[in-house]
Simulated scan of single mutants.
Amino acid sequence: MTTFPRAAALALILTAAPVSAALAQSAAGVEAVFRATTLSLNATGEVLAAPDMAIIGLGVATTSRTAAEAMAANARQMAQAMTALKAAGIAPRDIQTARITLNAQYAYDQGQTPRLTGYQAANQVTVTVHDLTRLGLAVDATVSAGANQVNGISFALSNPGAAETAAREAAVRALQAKADLYARATGYRVSRLVSLGETGGYEAPQPQPMMAMARMEKADTPVSPGELKVRIEVNGVYELVR
């Protein structure tokens, strides 16, 4: 049988005492929370902001008898479109290749085996335009130079921080007002905010699909950026007292 000196045993007892006290205090705190009357709510804050940039999807699709001819024609046409973009004031860093494809084309006649008719090559680029006054010009110049697909356009904020802050403040005010309303309606008053969380936030919109376009007329393409809605959602738990 192992024995311990009396001093060591006393030290163990003294060490265990504060731990037990801390656990008891923690349990009491948890129990108090469960005994409290709480209110769980969520609210949304929204602000409108004028966009200052646009993202457009442009492309070139070419069809030819052989794959090599289709790719070569596509490369020439795309090079002309890229030159037009740069001439319209679009920086090279704002032009990004998104997709290059080559697909065989078949004719499907009823009752017949599919017949190879040629190949289609396609090159898609994503273009970021920071000066919205040049957006219509950039699209027109590119299409005039050989781009025959406009796959989508979206507007965005280059720095959404200020709009997000305003939306957060609006969301918190709405949350507090809702908590006060529920408290009054149930004969309570808000004692304190127990927790606060955030969900959602601003996300730059993706280009929306548009119909593939043939060569456009020389007229300027009208552009209306409108306003963007920046939305922040918050949730909170409030303690209520009589």
Rank of each mutant, 00 (worst) to 15 (best):
N103H: 11
Q105Y: 03
A98G: 05
Q112N: 13
A88Y: 08
Q96T: 13
Q105P: 02
L102C: 05
I100M: 14
Q110D: 11
R93A: 14
Y108Q: 12
Q105E: 15
D94A: 13
I100C: 08
I100T: 14
A91G: 02
P92C: 04
R115C: 00
Q110N: 13
K86A: 14
Q96S: 07
Q110I: 08
N103C: 05
R99P: 01
I90R: 00
T101Y: 06
D94Q: 12
G89A: 05
A98M: 04
Q112R: 15
I100K: 11
P114A: 14
G89L: 09
R99H: 12
P92L: 06
T113H: 05
Y106I: 03
A98T: 12
A107L: 08
I90M: 05
Y106K: 01
A91R: 12
G111Y: 11
A107T: 12
R99D: 15
I95E: 00
P114H: 10
K86R: 15
D109A: 13
G111F: 07
G111K: 02
R99C: 04
T97I: 09
L116D: 04
I95F: 07
Q96D: 03
Q112F: 15
Q105G: 02
N103S: 08
Q96W: 05
K86F: 04
T101K: 01
R93G: 02
K86C: 03
Q105R: 11
L102G: 02
I95M: 14
T113M: 10
T113P: 04
N103M: 05
D94C: 09
T101W: 03
Y108K: 05
A91T: 12
T113G: 01
D109V: 08
D109Y: 10
Q112A: 15
I95A: 05
T113F: 07
I100Y: 11
G89T: 03
R93Y: 05
T113Q: 12
R115Y: 03
N103A: 13
P114Q: 11
A88G: 09
I95R: 06
T97P: 09
A88H: 09
A107E: 13
A107M: 08
P92E: 02
Q96M: 09
T97C: 02
A91D: 10
R99W: 06
Y106F: 15
A88Q: 06
R93P: 00
A107K: 11
A88T: 06
R115A: 14
A87C: 04
G111V: 09
L116W: 06
D94K: 03
Y106H: 10
T113A: 14
D109I: 11
A87K: 15
P92I: 01
A87V: 05
A104H: 05
R93L: 07
L116V: 08
I100Q: 15
R115D: 06
L102D: 04
I95C: 01
Q112P: 02
T101E: 09
Q112L: 14
P92W: 05
P114G: 10
L116T: 07
A98Q: 12
L102K: 00
N103G: 01
Q96F: 07
N103L: 03
K86N: 08
A104G: 15
N103D: 13
L102N: 09
I100L: 14
Y108C: 02
R93T: 08
